[in-house]
Design a protein around this nucleic acid. Structure first.
Length: 347
DNA sequence: AAATCGGGGAT
DNA sequence: ATCCCAGATTT
C-alpha cells in the first residue's frame, strides 16, 4: 500500500463518528468547516449542532440577522467567520438560487471560504479531486517527507499544497482528505505523537531521524499587545447601559459596556477622574469594582476591570443604549464581559 | 510578508 | 508560559 492507502486503512478503523461526516449537503459541510476553522472539534461540535438545528438550510441562514448569527456564535471567537457566513448565505440565495455550490472554483469566490475550505467542501460534498491543506496536513507531510520549509511562509504554503496535490488519491479524494486530517489530529499529534502504532512510521523521515519535535517548522512568533479595559456597569430599575462596538477592533459589531481604555494600568482613582470628566460631568459614587481580571487572547492580553454605578449619565455616547437586563440573552457579548455580567446579576 | 481576528485545551 | 486548533482577510 502507498502512503494514502495506508492512512485510509487506518482511518477506516479509527475514525470518530462526527455528524458532518454523515452528509454530502454542501451547506451542512460549509457550516461545519467554517465553525472548525482554528477550532478544535470538541469545542466546535455543540456550535455545529445549534447552527444546523436553528438553520437547517441556507435559506434559513440567509434570513437571519447579523445579531442572530453573532448571538449564536457567542463564545466561539473569530466572529468575522459568522459575519462572513451571513454574507455568503445571502450571496448563495441571490447568485446561486439558494443552491449551495459544491464546485471549488465557485466556492473560493465566497466570503470566508479560502483554499482549504473550498477544497474541503468540494471534496466532501461532490468528491472533487482537491487536496485539503490544514494544520494537520502541514504536520503530517512535514514529518513524513522531512520538509523544513516553514509552513507559514509563502513558499512553504505553495510547496505543501503541491505535495498534498501530488499525494491525493484521485479516485477517492473525500476519503483521502478525511484520512489525512483525522490521522494528523488523532495520531500524528503536535505533542507526543503515537509513533509506536503509526502505520507509516517505516517511511517517515521524522521518525527515522528523530525529528518529531523539530517538524513542522514555523516562523514569525506573534507579539502580544497589552490593553487595559475599564468597563462601566451602569444599571438602574432593571435597565443596563450597553455599547454596540464598531467594525474594526476585536468583537466587531458585538455588544459590550461603556468602555474607558487606557494605555497602561490605572489606579481606581485615576479611572474615576476619567469617569467624572468623560461620562458624568459631575461627581459620582462608585458602588463596586471587580478588581483586575486578566483575559488572555492569542494576540492581546486584556486587563479588564468592571466599575459599577447606579446613577445614569446625562448624555449617551455613540453606540450606547439602554436595554432590559432580561434582554441580555439576545445580545452577542464577548465571553469575558458576558461572564461578569451574568455572575453579577446572577442569571 | 506581516498583522489581525477569540477562546480553550494540552503540555 | 507556550503551542496550536478542519484559516481567512486586511494592511
Amino acid at each position: 500500500m502507498n502512503f494514502s492507502a495506508e492512512l485510509i486503512a487506518w482511518y477506516d478503523q479509527n475514525k470518530r463518528d462526527l455528524p458532518w461526516r454523515n452528509t454530502t449537503d454542501p451547506y451542512i459541510i460549509w457550516l461545519s468547516e467554517i465553525i472548525l476553522q482554528q477550532t478544535r472539534v470538541e469545542q466546535g461540535l455543540p456550535y455545529f449542532n445549534r447552527f444546523a438545528n436553528t438553520y437547517p438550510t441556507v435559506a434559513h441562514f440567509a434570513a437571519a440577522t447579523e445579531d442572530d448569527i453573532l448571538r449564536l456564535w457567542q463564545g466561539l471567537g473569530y466572529y468575522s467567520r459568522g459575519r462572513n457566513m451571513l454574507k455568503t448565505a445571502r450571496m448563495v440565495m441571490e447568485q446561486y438560487n439558494g443552491l449551495f455550490p459544491s464546485d471549488y472554483e465557485e466556492l473560493i469566490k465566497l466570503k470566508g471560504i479560502g483554499e482549504y475550505t473550498a477544497a474541503a467542501i468540494a471534496s466532501f460534498s461532490a468528491n472533487q479531486a482537491k487536496a485539503v491543506v490544514d494544520g494537520n496536513v502541514f504536520r503530517v507531510l512535514a514529518r513524513y517527507f522531512g520538509i523544513s520549509e516553514p509552513i507559514n511562509s509563502s513558499a512553504g504554503k505553495r510547496l505543501f499544497q503541491q505535495i498534498a496535490d501530488d499525494m491525493l488519491d484521485q479516485a477517492r479524494p473525500a476519503l483521502h482528505n478525511q484520512a489525512m486530517m483525522e490521522f494528523g489530529a488523532m495520531l500524528c499529534k503536535p505533542k507526543n505523537p503515537a509513533c509506536g502504532i503509526c502505520p507509516v512510521r517505516i517511511g517517515c523521515y521524522a521518525f527515522k531521524n528523530n525529528a518529531i519535535t523539530t517538524l513542522p517548522v514555523k516562523i514569525n512568533k506573534i507579539k502580544v499587545r497589552k490593553r487595559y479595559f475599564n468597563y462601566l456597569l451602569i444599571f438602574k430599575n432593571g435597565k443596563i447601559l450597553i455599547n454596540k462596538r464598531g467594525e474594526n477592533d476585536i468583537w466587531a459589531n458585538m455588544y459590550d459596556l461603556p468602555l474607558i481604555e487606557s494605555s497602561e494600568l490605572l489606579e481606581i482613582e485615576q479611572v474615576m477622574t476619567l469617569v467624572r470628566e468623560n461620562i458624568y460631568g459631575v461627581n459620582v459614587t462608585l458602588k463596586d469594582n471587580s478588581g483586575i481580571i486578566k483575559h488572555i487572547l492569542t494576540h492581546q492580553q486584556l486587563f479588564i476591570r468592571f466599575l459599577v454605578f447606579t446613577e445614569l449619565p446625562k448624555k449617551l455616547h455613540g453606540g450606547w443604549f439602554y436595554t432590559d437586563i432580561t434582554n441580555l440573552d439576545n445580545l452577542a457579548l464577548p465571553k469575558s464581559v458576558f461572564k461578569f455580567i451574568k455572575d453579577f446579576f446572577n442569571f
